[in-house]
């Protein structure tokens, strides 16, 4: 199973400390719930682990391979990141098809099954630009899971999704965990994570201040 090890991670942008002395080890087959106030560093930590942010010092290794030295991005990882949208001019199926062409591991059936899994219609020709926020977020979840990734980094994955949809997403994430995936998700409130997380991590001022089971 996948292991992510973070050692003495610091990140500063324009003299502002965003991440401060983070040391932690994440293991596959678990759901980690990252919570804390706005600006506490949750999203930044997620982005750093995804390889999107360059550490000012310290390192992140995935199964022994150091990010930005041995690899540019973790192998077989998927993300949901704030402000990252899908292509508005295409329908849901086409959006995932374009992404699927890169790794070439998901079949057309996988694409359709996962669109259906998040409660959307895989045969619909409706363009993503016409989707509601909740539908877009559901499609983002489908984008994250359809290639059966080993690592899932999800920044507030249930944002804008209705109650029924939230239950569905939680069920999907439990299934992904059973498959052995390492899942890390963020929320402002610990209560949001209670139905799902195995380990809670509290962040404050760019550092991890508490972790509990």
């Amino acid at each position: 199973m996948t292991t992510i090890r973070i050692s003495s991670l610091h990140k500063k942008i324009r003299k502002k400390t965003l991440l401060h002395d983070i040391n932690y080890e994440f293991n596959g087959g678990n759901i980690y719930g990252l919570y804390g106030r706005n600006g506490s560093g949750k999203t930044m930590l997620l982005r750093a682990m995804a390889g999107l942010l360059m550490p000012s010092s310290g390192e992140i290794s995935i199964d022994g391979k150091v990010l930005h030295k041995d690899i540019s991005f973790p192998a077989n990882m998927s993300v949901i990141i704030e402000n990252t949208s899908l292509l508005h001019q295409y329908n849901a199926h086409m959006n995932l098809k374009i992404l699927a062409k890169i790794r070439n591991i998901a079949t057309d059936e996988d694409i359709k099954a996962n669109i259906k899994r998040v409660g959307l219609d895989p045969e619909s020709n409706m363009k993503v630009g016409k989707f509601s926020l909740g539908m877009k977020q559901r499609l983002s979840v489908a984008q994250a899971i359809f290639e059966k990734p080993d690592i899932l980094l999800l920044d507030e994955p249930t944002n804008a999704i209705d109650e029924e949809g939230v239950t569905l997403v939680y069920q999907i994430l439990k299934e992904e965990k059973e498959r052995g995936a390492l899942i890390l998700l963020t929320s402002h409130h610990k209560q949001d994570l209670e139905a799902l997380a195995d380990i809670y991590i509290k962040m404050e001022n760019g550092g991890i201040v508490l972790d509990s089971k």
Binding site: S72, F73, T84, L87, I102
Partner: peptide, 15 residues
């Protein structure tokens, strides 16, 4: 670098 490309980039494994 900030939108849809992120999804492409992490799959390509190249910045």
């Amino acid at each position: 670098i900030s939108g849809y490309g992120v999804y492409l980039m992490i799959r390509e494994k190249s910045r």
